[in-house]
């Protein structure tokens, strides 16, 4: 674990390089999120109806940030491709940067998964904070069933993320198309959850529609990838312990 964290530090340089100009979108997203947070609390202080105005804004911004983070974590995913064997110039650059540094392949797998856990933890944290706030202000008490349904879809999406790692680790060279397919499918499922809520616009609040993670069930389901990904780490380590940096 210590080595994986060191690897993440080493990865900062590569991340900056990979992000390139996208870093402005990423940092812009963070700034927007904090502006949103500030807006909602100012709204509360001014006594506005948070569920329709400022609450909607913050949830929208949280979701925006979530997708920005996903974009950002694409880079973590690119790094994980290292173990899957896809070859292109960027992957070559990443390998050339890392292979002589004092890390084993297993550190790479753990570091990749830690970077994904960051999403889960961040989303959970944001959702948890918002959920606590929404409970306090009695937001989102209608159509809990739909919220749970969307949450389940979101969690299925997470599970697919993890399946992608497993398939990649087991099949190495020839798994990339399958991994890409699963990755896309997971996004489709996640977005389907959001759109499903859209069909019921008017019955639920805008905040609920945009935030399937803000229900109690969603919050609990959100935690489910943690033990699952721990299992994934264990399997990946078994499979990849002796892996080389290039699958030539």
């Amino acid at each position: 674990m210590k080595n994986a964290l060191l690897l993440l530090k080493a990865n900062r340089i590569m991340r900056q390089d990979i992000l390139g100009k996208r870093k402005y979108i990423f940092y812009g997203g963070i700034i927007l999120m904090f502006i949103g947070m500030a807006m909602v609390f100012i709204g509360f202080l001014l006594g506005k109806d948070s569920s329709d105005d400022f609450g909607s804004s913050i949830v929208f911004l949280i979701q925006l940030q979530f997708f920005l983070i996903i974009t950002f974590i694409f880079d973590g995913f690119i790094i994980l491709k290292n173990g899957i064997g896809q070859s292109n110039q960027r992957i070559e650059d990443i390998r050339n940067y890392f292979f002589h540094l004092p890390f084993e392949f297993s550190d790479f797998i753990i570091a990749g998964l830690i970077s994904f856990w960051q999403i889960f933890l961040l989303s959970t944290l944001i959702s948890g904070v918002y959920y606590a706030v929404s409970l306090f202000f009695e937001i989102g008490e209608k159509n809990k069933g739909l919220v749970v349904l969307a949450s389940i879809l979101s969690c299925v999406a997470y599970v697919f993320f993890l399946c992608a790692f497993l398939v990649g680790a087991f099949c190495k060279k020839h798994a990339w198309k399958a991994v890409n397919g699963i990755y896309v499918l997971s996004f489709v499922l996640f977005i389907a959850g959001i759109f499903l809520m859209g069909f019921f616009e008017g019955q639920i609040t805008f905040a609920e529609k945009l935030s399937p993670l803000c229900s109690p069930a969603g919050f609990l389901l959100l935690l489910s990838p943690v033990p699952l990904s721990a299992l994934a780490v264990w399997i990946l380590l078994k499979v990849c312990k002796k892996g080389a940096w290039y699958n030539a």
Partner: peptide, 27 residues
Amino acid sequence: NEREIKQRIGYAADEDCLCIGSTLGAH
């Protein structure tokens, strides 16, 4: 003993083993 060995090896090559979008200071 990959980790331990790489701690004790220095490597330089005629190809980009650095993250070229970054700086030497950052490395």
